[in-house]
Design a protein around this nucleic acid. Structure first.
Length: 245
RNA sequence: UCACUGCUC
């Protein structure tokens, strides 16, 4: 089942759903039973093929076939719905989880939080964040990054910085994504000084800028009318073996 | 011990 899951997952991710279906039939012939992991990869494949309705049907089917959907099944679906902008539908699945005794986890709430942020609904996003804390969860680095990104999108840079400096209280260490997100936020607000300072902080703690850092900073410097710095930075990137795109 | 889910350009 481990091997089948890996192969079916890869087929789904390449959009080769037909071949994935064939392989599932083959599983049965070899006496390997279907399990939730295999179904979850399929749900994921259906979502990536924009077949959200079929993904929901498959989740429903799981309940009827003896093995129930897991938190991961719901998480895949909720993430897919959020990415498709169907936030309220995603929320109703979270409610359904709670009603059925499935405990939504940090990933569930992170997906929903990201959906709200992308929907530019920072008020509801902050609401969800506070509820999450009240429920006694500990946000991880990824969830912090999602909130910081949302606050930047809403132009609330000070709030974003506040969340950033408080990460340590949750035993979270900011990572490259955190720094990249903040730099982009400040560049978009035309504050290249702060963005540059963040780049410096990143270096200080030993994080190496990646291709995303360079793309954000190159674009940001150009936006802020600092093309000469951008050209210098481009050379710097090449010297580090990175070719910005 | 090995398989499925969330963040930045």
């Amino acid at each position: 089942a481990y091997a089948y899951t890996s192969m079916i997952d890869s087929l789904c991710k390449e959009g080769r759903l037909e071949e994935a279906a064939t392989m599932i039939k083959e599983m049965g012939k070899h006496g390997t039973e279907l399990n939730s992991h295999v179904c979850n990869t399929l749900i994921n494949g259906l979502i990536q093929a924009s077949r959200l309705g079929d993904a929901v049907l498959l989740l429903r089917q799981m309940g009827r076939n003896g093995f129930s959907p897991t938190v991961v099944s719901y998480n895949i679906l909720i993430h897919g719905l959020c990415k498709a902008g169907k936030i309220s539908e995603a929320s109703s699945f979270v409610k359904e989880m709670l009603e059925n005794g499935w405990k939504p986890d940090t990933i569930t709430y992170s997906s929903l939080l990201d959906g709200l942020c992308q929907d530019r609904n920072i008020e509801l996003a902050l609401n969800l964040w506070h509820q999450f804390l009240v429920m006694g969860f500990n946000p991880d680095v990824t969830m912090h990054n999602i909130l910081i990104h949302g606050l930047c999108l809403a132009g609330k840079l000070e709030d974003a910085m506040n969340v950033f400096v408080k990460m340590g209280q949750w035993n979270c260490v900011p990572n490259l994504v955190t720094y990249n997100t903040l730099m982009e936020g400040f560049f978009k607000a035309r504050d290249s000084d702060t963005a540059t300072a963040i780049w410096g902080c990143m270096y200080k703690i030993g994080l190496e800028p990646d291709i995303v850092s360079y793309n954000i900073t190159l674009k940001g410097l150009c936006m802020c009318g600092k093309v000469s710095y951008a050209i210098k930075l481009f050379d710097d990137a090449l010297n580090h073996g990175i070719l910005p795109t």
